[in-house]
């Protein structure tokens, strides 16, 4: 399994790397590109703290070999910040005290944004299902669920409901 050149568009920037066969996307994002919002909670696909969006799909960057996503478009929380597309969610997190230590929060933001992108009006069950891959050890999840419900309420309010 050889190293090869891989091209990615990360948060709108074209990037090129020479990577080994099993180099994870997480390592490239965190250590090569310094997108430190991509947290490393387990490197086992078990905590969701490294969640990113690859070509519109929610993925765990720790379990994603870079070579497998050659040519893809990758968005981290830094990318979502740039577009300001998650400002409402961020404000809801602040208002609902939906983070304590904050280590799971970037992965949560990305996972929730992915949920809202595919389902702008999720039920409570759909919200908890959307959070199923992300572990939070501090909050007991209820404030996070309330924050998502808050965004949903705001969005449906804005649409005239």
């Amino acid at each position: 399994m050889a190293s090869r050149i891989v091209s990615l568009k990360v948060n709108g920037q074209n990037e090129e790397f020479i990577v080994g066969a099993l180099t994870s996307l997480q390592d490239i994002l965190r250590d090569t590109l310094n997108y430190t919002s991509v947290k490393e909670g387990c490197r086992q696909g078990g905590c969701g703290s490294c969640s990113v969006i690859i070509d519109g799909e929610l993925r765990l960057s720790c379990l994603t070999p870079v070579q497998e996503v050659d040519g893809s478009e990758v968005t981290t929380l830094e990318g979502l910040n740039q577009s300001n597309s998650i400002a409402a969610l961020q404000q809801q997190f602040i208002d609902k005290y939906a983070a304590q230590c904050g280590f799971c929060t970037p992965g949560m933001m990305v996972a929730i944004q992915a949920l809202l992108d595919r389902n702008p009006n999720p039920s409570r069950d759909e919200i908890t299902e959307g959070l199923a891959g992300n572990i939070c050890r501090c909050t007991g999840y209820l404030p996070i669920i309330k924050a998502v419900e808050g965004v949903v309420a705001e969005m449906s309010g804005a649409s005239g409901d």
Binding site: T36, V38, E40, N81, Q90, A99, G102, T105, M109
Partner: peptide, 21 residues
Amino acid sequence: VKLRDLDTHVTGETVYYEDIR
């Protein structure tokens, strides 16, 4: 009152020990 680190928690900008370069 607002939790002080929340502003950076939600943007991923909070600096934990391993975020120093």
